[in-house]
């Protein structure tokens, strides 16, 4: 009789523990889905001092500059609208170039639903990138599949490093794999 009572108590305790754990899990899921604020990555007002480490010279770039309106700026951008992300390697494979004819430095961000998952260092005119590292924690926000996202391209004065009054947004398709 006593033994049965003890067994019943243990079962009840286990059941309570299970219910508490399940409730905690549900609470975490609800918080993650509806209340967690996405990490905000602010676009720098001045160009990063560090040049993008994965940047390479654009082959056969003439470097002949565009004519720039007085007091303004001129840029040229060359890109592909398909980007793939490898979660295992924490890398994005893309094609983005700041041809030598630009007269502004650039920073390119990859954005999915207002979340910046990639931000390059400074890309000087005449440089291109085919690979960029994911920002810390970005891989936790993504799962395998295809996303509609965008390039956010920021321009900076090469002398003062000051951000230009104009920026560019470009819709892209991002394929995420493990």
């Amino acid at each position: 009789m006593e033994e049965q009572k003890a067994k019943r108590n243990i079962t009840r305790m286990l059941l309570i523990l299970f219910i508490v754990a399940a409730a905690a899990a549900i609470a975490v899921i609800v918080w993650a889905l509806y209340f967690r604020k996405p990490e905000v990555v602010l676009s720098p007002d001045y160009a990063p001092r560090e040049e993008e480490p994965y940047a390479e010279d654009i082959p056969d770039d003439s470097g002949e500059k565009l004519t720039s309106p007085e007091g303004g700026g001129s840029v040229s951008i060359t890109y592909s609208r398909n980007v793939s992300v490898d979660l295992g390697e924490r890398r994005a494979a893309l094609h983005f170039a700041n041809p030598g004819k630009s007269n502004q430095d650039m920073v390119v961000q990859i954005v999915i639903r207002d979340n910046v998952i990639v931000q390059s260092g400074t890309l000087k005119p005449g440089k291109q990138v085919d690979s960029l590292e994911l920002l810390d924690g970005a891989e936790e926000q993504l799962t395998e599949g295809t996303y509609e996202g965008g390039f956010n391209v920021l321009y900076y004065d090469p002398e003062s490093g000051e951000k230009a009054v104009v920026n560019t947004e470009i819709p892209i398709q991002i394929t995420v794999s493990k």
Binding site: E70, G71, G72, S74, V75, R81, P99, A164, V165, V166
Partner: peptide, 15 residues
Amino acid sequence: TPEVYSVDVSWGAMQ
């Protein structure tokens, strides 16, 4: 023939 995007953007003093 993959699509290659290449666009120039220029702006004035905006004063």
